[in-house]
Design a protein around this nucleic acid. Sequence first.
DNA 1: TTATATTTAGGCATATATCCCTAAACTATT
DNA 2: AATAGTTTAGGGATATATGCCTAAATATAA
Lengths: 65, 65
Amino acid sequence: MIAFGNNLRKLRQAKKLSMEALSYEADIDLSQVFRIEKGLVNPTLSTLHAIANALGITLKDLFDY
Amino acid sequence: MIAFGNNLRKLRQAKKLSMEALSYEADIDLSQVFRIEKGLVNPTLSTLHAIANALGITLKDLFDY
DNA sequence: TTATATTTAGGCATATATCCCTAAACTATT
DNA sequence: AATAGTTTAGGGATATATGCCTAAATATAA
């Protein structure tokens, strides 16, 4: 989970998005984006899907790390 | 979620595994495997990870559909 | 420094993922 | 047909993901 969070942060920053911008695009709460990147929670598939969409990538690429 | 479930079923059957065998290998309850394949639930990352491991594939490949 | 933006943190409430159980329905196999 | 294996179904209990909130800490900009 922490590995995924680290990768997500990298992807997000590569797109020059703030957590808030990502949370808005993905329609996910900012606090949740933070928790996911920190590996504090165990996100659900729907959340992962929303994040991938917001980043403009596929779920497959979200896990390409 | 239903698309993922359909893909999972395909992958599981390709490995000649019963739901019970997969549930045992992944240490996930059989009822949960059923629900995931049917798209009745929104699985968590840890569950997805366990399933991928049990199938002998990466998370990335679990979403290659 | 001062102000602005971003990240980090945590509490509370609600929804639901997961486990554990039983049992029925369906599908081979003999 | 009868037996065994597999899938489908649902109920109850528990843990936790998520949303919403406030606020502090850190980073960036002016």
